[in-house]
Design a protein around this nucleic acid. Sequence first.
DNA 1: TGGCAAATCGTTGTGCACATCAGGCGATGA
DNA 2: TCATCGCCTGATGTGCACAACGATTTGCCA
Lengths: 226, 226
Amino acid sequence: MADGTGDPGLTVKDRHAAMHAALRQRICLLDYPPGMQLSEIALANEFGTSRTPMRRVLARLEEEGLVQSVHGVGTIVTDANITELEQAYRLRVELTALTGVLDPVMPDALFLERLKDLIDRAGQMVASGTPKSFTQLDMDVFQALLELTENAPLRHVLERLYYQTKRLWLVRAIKAELDLEEEYRVFLHELEAIHIALKSGDLTAVAQIQRAHISMSFNRLLHHRN
Amino acid sequence: MADGTGDPGLTVKDRHAAMHAALRQRICLLDYPPGMQLSEIALANEFGTSRTPMRRVLARLEEEGLVQSVHGVGTIVTDANITELEQAYRLRVELTALTGVLDPVMPDALFLERLKDLIDRAGQMVASGTPKSFTQLDMDVFQALLELTENAPLRHVLERLYYQTKRLWLVRAIKAELDLEEEYRVFLHELEAIHIALKSGDLTAVAQIQRAHISMSFNRLLHHRN
DNA sequence: TGGCAAATCGTTGTGCACATCAGGCGATGA
DNA sequence: TCATCGCCTGATGTGCACAACGATTTGCCA
């Protein structure tokens, strides 16, 4: 109860999706750090339901590789180590490029407005940003740019890969193993480049810019492992 | 009971995976045709378990787009119409090409033996093959060729897309809307080409051959819609 | 005889009690 | 003192009874 998921005519699948999104958010923002044990009963109580629906949500998170349930032990948030996620990261790089090829959709003026707001937020981030607030902004940008393709399966897979790999950056950033100021500046520059490409209507260029930055971000993660 | 999933030290997840694979097989071989209503209780009884584990399996099948559960109505096998699956098919085409780029793995001699057996089966198929037996062979070939990449996320996504889109061909073939003999010959020719490319050690070529044939197969499906 | 409303039936969704399992803790004996 | 066995605790997995829901049927009334 008191979880914000009250029922204004919402169907059951919407409530499941809300719980899933909430838990995914907490895991990827490290509110639930790797290795933390989740309690089905506690989560069920928090969301005002019982174990049965909560177990369904946790099973989905397990399919997505964010938690792992072991009989008799518990449900543990998975570790985010770069060696196991390297394959997912490289696949994500290639799939991002495909957004400019498979069913790209030209955005409307409203979209450009939203992107402009996100760029403003990124500008403020350079001045005063925490790793967590930056990740939150990155998630919002990702969700927005995902609308540039209408290919539903592609969007589904990209979303899955994004949330699988995103924790890598945040873990490193919190441990101060990254040059945060440079990360912020590079991200701002990426958004500006995407904005320019969008105004020129070149969706392939938008996809390639994203691809390049995801690849470079991964390389920075690799090289900083001391 | 009497389902073949007896427990020789198998863990619980293995039994879930076995039930999932069995139902997926039945759906994709049209033993459970589109529109058919599945009974949770009947399936649970058949597999010697209760509704709770069966519902977990069905929920996963729903995530994969093979069934759809509606509260108060039932669990129905989804329709396999080409317009909704076109996006998935085109994504599958592109991802197949990636198997030659992301973590390709050179097969051993045993693999070539297995492939040779599959080619023999394909040869017999040309003489006396039913659409269903051909689909079964195609599944075996797919699973074998999937071993040519070690990228686990890529394999996972490809498997999902394969089983999402495979029913399209079988539906058309059963309705005799395809030139079956040509389909068999083309498939045999594809396997021979893959075999040649494998012997030369060119995994990129193997991926491109697959990509080309998947694309051509999709075009044949498109053009035959009268 | 036609139409509408209420009851009925079958299905999926939920809650709860119990089974099963893994790990830790302590008693016990060599 | 240490090793070992067994209990105990808390977790996930399972089975069952009931609630919620939608489609169909039935029966009543105009």
